[in-house]
Write a protein that binds this DNA or RNA. Structure first.
Lengths: 353, 353
DNA sequence: CTGTTAGCGCTTTCAG
DNA sequence: CTGAAAGCGCTAACAG
């Protein structure tokens, strides 16, 4: 059924029907109620394409990320996407999750959606910045908020950027580990973790801990490398390992326990992200936890504000926000301080200031 | 830029431009190439809404599921959704993931999308059938494929249905456990697992194993109930537990190990679904694994075929498909047969035929 | 093979 | 507060 025939049935003009549904323009509450009631009764639903074509708005937020080689690597993105979808819903928007395995295709798609107003705004979870730098200018008319693990460069204009800054969390983790008697704390790098890596180095220094280069394991992709990483680090007599992601940490725990290493007695493990599943591993995985709901809400709010601002033709500014994940303590971190090991370890670890 | 001005720039009619992009209608390869090239150069992209409004097609598949109370419970749906998105992509469609926390809203949304052709078809992951029965008739014009853990009732017409039938997998699991010396095999029910539950009962019987009602733990929702479930079952001297989902199994493993129960020596655990994370728990979680990529491909293929059929006005039939998940063996299942425990257990377990 | 034209179903001034 | 009418940008016959 189309608006015209429906309007005829109700006995009003199509304009009135339109107003009843869109909420724009003046309409008496009475007729509005009547129209809505009749619509339900007669089964009329405004055509979404016609509406979007005409209004140049879609009430959709595009959310873009790429598939990984294995689903397990997508856990973080999936959980985040879900939170984004929730947050969008709360703001009266629907999330258009655009998952791709092909970057070119994704770019093309983004361009199409953005330039035809199929989405009102876009949230980009960007790992490597190279591509973004290239195509963001092409959709400059479409508000965009980025979510990154590094500070967003001011040279690339966006409506907003959410920076997930692990530095404090990493410092907190390292000093916690130190306070519990650890001095040989290794780090397993992720795929794109320059910022985290730096934070680790700095945290070790701040904690007054020495550091051997061999305690840092280069970034790796698949779990099969997990065993190698742990073994390599254990050979270096590391007593704790910080991992750039929870997924890496899962791999580490798995491999370590297979080798008969007791967690957390022989080895403390800490991940990053705090996936939902991390609370239920054995032992529970301590993690520097990204508050995904906050990230999601911040992104969506920033984005919707940008959309409104734009609609009212206001000046374009960038709203930046930094979010500081904090250490979530769980069993993999080892027993609480000072009780069992601390005294002993203060003797054992010669490097403590 | 709109098609008219672009057509003018290129020096052809708008119809020709349309043909160049849509692939429909006759057009010389030469002009087509030229138009496409110019489009890229001038930055013209066909308006997606106008196109859909006019063609009454969207190349979108709606995928509907509801958020759970906690993200961990959504793992299965998220992984499946991702596979569905992949499969859709391969067929030239885009997935519109519609995640909701409110069933009414979801229904409304589905109605809107379906009735205005915002989606060409819909894939429904349906747990409880009650609601579906009510609103499916309302979108009878929109091809729909369902994914369920029970056989789809013929009384509710759909374009296709994928039935994930755990029966064989459950039988396989029970008999494997029996062959490894287990006779007291418990079961933890899920939220909606009538079919699985029946299969368990039947499998126990087929395996010639006795069964006490107390070995079956009623379905539960949150992990906090996990401890209770395991403890209750362990009190019944159960030596193996089958769980209706991997998530339940994770909870069981976590609680058991916290209580000092050794896995798999003291207790074998098997889940269902085979989440990506299950391969990386400690011990690795054996699971009756849903081949999500097959499920996804089957659903999407069935759906796209239905869409085509409908377009060509063919007769409507229901394509049903049954998928049989199989046991994926991992450490939580216990050591391989006959080597260590079998002999002993044949003596110990009096109930073996 | 290409151009013309009549819609697709709604929003939004602009009158009244 | 409501109605009339002019688009929104494209597709799909129908001519040529």
């Amino acid at each position: 059924m189309d608006i015209r025939t429906f309007a005829e049935i109700v006995g009003v003009s199509i304009a009135t029907v339109s107003r009843a549904f869109s909420g724009n323009g003046r309409i008496s509450p009475e007729t509005k109620r009547h129209i809505l009631k009749m619509a339900k009764k007669k089964g009329f639903t405004p055509n979404i394409h016609a509406r979007r074509l005409s209004s140049q708005e879609s009430a959709m937020l595009g959310i873009f990320y790429s598939f990984s080689s294995e689903p397990i690597f997508d856990y973080y993105n999936m959980e985040l996407a879900q939170e984004l979808a929730k947050a969008a819903l709360q703001q009266g928007y629907t999330a258009q999750l655009e998952l791709t395995n092909d970057d070119d295709r994704q770019e093309e798609r983004l361009l199409q959606l953005a330039s035809t107003k199929a989405i009102d705004g876009v949230i980009l979870v960007v790992g490597k910045i190279a591509r973004a730098r290239k195509f963001l200018p092409k959709i400059s008319h479409c508000p965009c908020v980025t979510i990154t693990n590094f500070p967003w460069p001011k040279t690339i204009p966006v409506a907003g950027s959410i920076f997930i800054d692990f530095q404090k969390g990493i410092e907190q983790t390292i000093s916690t580990l130190r306070d519990r008697g650890h001095s040989r704390i290794g780090y397993i790098r992720g795929m794109v973790d320059e910022t985290k890596h730096q934070a680790y180095l700095m945290a070790m220094e701040k904690a007054g801990l020495d550091l051997e280069p061999s305690w840092i394991h280069p970034g790796y992709k698949s779990f099969s490398d997990g065993e190698r990483a742990v073994r390599a680090l254990l050979k270096r007599r590391v007593t704790a390992i910080l991992c750039a992601t929870d997924i890496l940490a899962l791999g580490v725990m798995h491999a370590a326990q297979e080798d008969g290493v007791c967690l957390p007695e022989d080895l403390a493990v800490v991940g990053m992200d705090d996936l939902a599943v991390s609370a239920f591993t054995t032992p529970g995985l301590a993690s520097i936890g990204v508050p995904r709901n906050h990230v999601a809400q911040a992104s969506v709010e920033t984005l919707t504000r940008a959309i409104r601002d734009k609609r009212y033709d206001q000046i374009k500014t960038t709203y930046s926000q930094t979010i500081h994940p904090q250490l979530v303590e769980r069993h993999s971190l080892g027993s609480l301080p000072l009780k069992n090991i601390t005294k002993k370890s203060f003797d054992t670890s010669p490097k403590n200031a």
